[in-house]
Amino acid sequence: MSKKLKIAIQKSGRLQEQSIKMLKECGLSFANGSSRLKAEVDNFPAEILFLRDDDIPQYIEDNVADIGIIGENVFIEKEKQGEIILKLGFAKCRLSIAVPKSAEYKDAGTLNGKKIATSYPVIVQQFLNENNVNAEIHEISGSVEIAPGIGLAEAICDIVSTGSTLLTNGLKEVETIMKSEAILVANNNLDAESKAILDRLVFRINSVNAAKSNKYLVLNAPNNAIEAITEVLPGMKSPTVTPLKEEGWSSLHSVVNENDFWGKIDELKALGAQGILVIPIEKMIL
């Protein structure tokens, strides 16, 4: 029986949908019904384990799962053994301190002597230690935002995405103590065969993520502007230049990073580029 990489992902919640989407973009074919706890991958040496997010670090440490996709905040909070292989670029959020809108907040020292409600006592304690703050932590598992309103605490520390939940509960965000996103974590003791399969998967993930952050650019330009345009569009090595039927003109093909996209377009137009096409890239093998 051939070796299979055991991949743990969230059974339900904010990470599940994006984790499944990423794995399928990497070419892995598997069923993912809501009642499933395990699924075989049809076309890759792996199986998917659907687990509670908070349990994934423990399963990785215990060798039940070889790798897992979890929030960075969960991995740090659980303090389990494992190696961060990749930051995956989705499910981005922040872990922040919030206080009632009417409360004054100057800096971390404001929390001295206060009660802080949170589901992340380990991370909050690290923050307090780093800032020489002596505060009392109340660990609660859910509905952290209501703690100040019912007199349980004077501040909270919780995951924030948009901040709308804080506003609804009469709170204001005053301190970001950690930025988090989905990460790929591996067991520290993977054998050589499992590591080889993991390397194949990481290669696919990097190819998918590179494609998302880049665009394929096609444009027409006068030949006397090609050198200047090449300086703007170096591409992965250099732009591809193909002569057009119209004398004195060529077609240039290149790849542009998403972050530089509009700035590059303005420069290209100024150099005489015409008929600019911007095409999404499905996969990008580096």
Rank of each mutant, 00 (worst) to 15 (best):
D158E: 00
I123R: 09
V122F: 01
I116A: 08
T162F: 00
C157A: 15
A117F: 08
K114R: 15
A147C: 13
E136L: 14
N132H: 13
Y120R: 08
S141D: 11
N169V: 02
G163Y: 02
L128G: 07
N132F: 07
C157S: 13
N169Q: 10
E136D: 15
L128Q: 07
G151T: 05
G149A: 15
L128V: 07
E145F: 08
I150F: 11
K115H: 12
A155Y: 03
I146D: 03
V144R: 06
L152D: 06
N129P: 08
D158P: 00
P121N: 04
K114F: 12
Q125S: 14
I140Q: 05
V122A: 03
N134Q: 15
A155C: 09
G151M: 05
A153V: 04
I116T: 08
S141E: 11
S161R: 13
I150T: 11
I156H: 00
N131M: 01
N129G: 08
S161H: 09
N132V: 01
S141Y: 03
A135F: 13
I116E: 10
C157N: 02
I123G: 08
E130Y: 04
L167S: 01
T165S: 14
V144N: 06
E139M: 09
E154R: 06
S164I: 13
I146L: 10
F127D: 04
A153M: 02
L128A: 04
N132K: 12
Q126M: 07
T168H: 13
K115G: 03
F127M: 00
H138K: 15
I159E: 07
G149M: 12
E130M: 14
I140M: 12
I140D: 06
N134L: 15
V122I: 06
N169E: 07
V144Q: 06
S164L: 12
C157H: 06
V133R: 01
N131V: 03
T168A: 14
V160G: 02
Y120P: 05
P148T: 11
N132D: 11
V124H: 05
T162Y: 02
Q125Y: 08
V144Y: 09
Q125K: 15
G151L: 03
F127V: 01
S164N: 11
N134M: 15
G142E: 10
A117V: 12
N131P: 07
I123W: 07
T165A: 15
I123M: 08
I123E: 07
N134C: 15
E136P: 10
Q126F: 01
G151A: 04
S119G: 12
L167A: 00
G142C: 04
I116L: 12
E145L: 12
I159C: 00
A147Y: 08
F127C: 01
I137F: 00
A153F: 05
E130A: 15
T162G: 06
V122H: 05
G149N: 14
N169C: 05
Q125L: 11
I116V: 13
